[in-house]
Amino acid sequence: MSKLEVKNLNMHYGDFHVLQSVNMPIAQHEITAMIGPSGCGKSTLLRCFNRMNDLIESAKIQGEILLDEKNILVKETNLIKLRKKVGMVFQRPNPFPLSIYENVSYGPKIHGEGKKRVLLEIVQKALEDVLLWDELKDRLKDSALSLSLEQQQRLTIARLLAVQPEVLLMDEPCSALDPISTQRVEELMFQLKEKYTIVIVTHNMQQAARVSDRTGYMLLGRLVEFDETQKIFTNPKHKETEDYVTGRFG
C-alpha cells in the first residue's frame, strides 16, 4: 500500500503551470528520489506534501494527494496535524538561533509536551537517532548556530524526528555538505527508512542511485518517468530520462 499517492496534481504560480498532471505513488518505508534539471518543479512538488505552498499567495493547486488514503488538499485538512505527520528538512540547514536543546525540544513543546523529564528523553532519543548524542550531550545549552554544517543538518533532522513524523521530506539535504558529511547523512537516511517514509529531492544522480528505492524524473513540470531506481538508471523507458541520467543533458 502506498503511504502517499499523488493523483492528477496540477499547480500554478499565477499563470505559470509549474506542475502538470503529476501521478505517482510513494511507498511506505522506502526512499523515493526526485531528480531533474533545475527549475523543473521538484521542490514545488515536495512542498505540496506538507502544504508549505499555502504560504505562497500566487500558488493554486488542483488534484489530489492521498496520505493514508485521505486527500490532504481539501480545505478541512488540519495543517498542524499534517505537518506533524509529514516533516521537512530543508536545503540549507536552518536550526533556530536557540540552544541545541531548545531546537530539538521545539516540536514536542509546541505540540503540548510540558514535562522537563519527558522532553529530555525525547531530545536524547532524537539526537541518538541522528548519531549526535555522544558529541553533543555535554553542550546541549550551546547555540545551535555554533555547530558545523553537517551537525546542523543532523540537528534539523533530529528536530524533526522529535515530533514523531511518519513521512520525511528532504529537499537537497546534502547540497550544503562536503562529500564525507554527505556520505554520513546518506547512511543516516538508510537507517531512518526502517521507520519512516522518505522523499528526497536531489541534484546528485549518484546520490539518487545510491540511496533510493524508486526514482521519479521530472522535466519542465511533468513527471516524465517513475520507476524502481535501478530501472531508471540502467534501463529507462524514455529517451529524455536516458539523456539525463547518462549526463547528456542538464
Binding site: N50, M52, L55, L79, I80, K81, L82, R83, K84, G87, M88, F90, R92, N94, P95, F96, P97, L98, Y106, G107, K109, I110, H111, T156, R159, L160, V163
Partner: peptide, 25 residues
C-alpha cells in the same frame, strides 16, 4: 524566512512561530 519555514513545517502555528522563533531571533 528559513526560520519561519522551519517552524511552520514542524506544525507550529503562525503565532507560536513568531513568539518562539522570530522574536527571540
Amino acid at each position: 524566512p528559513s526560520y519561519r519555514e522551519g517552524s511552520l513545517a514542524l506544525g507550529a502555528t503562525p503565532w507560536q512561530t513568531v513568539y518562539r522563533v522570530v522574536l527571540p531571533a
